[in-house]
């Protein structure tokens, strides 16, 4: 029996993504505010895949390239990831499988 899934807050996600973007993508931390656009941060679809992989490795939730469609800013990335993690957690508590 697995341990019950932990609650992941938006701040947990923000800390993880910020660390990735600062350490590996060379983006200054002060540029990472919610309204910063993907263009401002020079983030493209491949970057989103990398972000998704880091999220999956840490929180166990799979982020697909399609999940990032329509997201235009840093705050949107955090919200999307949080929704996906919460969705997985709810599914697990309900004993249902993610049908993706």
């Amino acid at each position: 029996m697995n341990a019950p899934p932990q609650t992941v807050t938006p701040d947990d996600i923000r800390a993880l993504i910020t660390q990735l973007l600062v350490d590996e993508f060379d983006i200054a931390a002060e540029r990472l505010h919610d309204a910063a656009t993907m263009t401002d941060l020079d983030l493209d679809s491949l970057d989103m895949v990398e972000i998704g992989q880091v999220v999956e490795a840490r929180f166990g939730t799979r982020i697909k390239m399609a999940d990032a469609q329509g997201i235009s800013d840093f705050g949107g990335i955090i919200q999307m990831i949080h929704r996906k993690i919460e969705g997985d957690r709810t599914d697990e508590q309900d004993g249902t499988e993610d049908s993706q």
Binding site: L46, V49, E50, Q53, E56, A57
Partner: peptide, 10 residues
Amino acid sequence: PSAISALTIP
């Protein structure tokens, strides 16, 4: 396989 970098092919 889930750890393979998305940048591998490019």
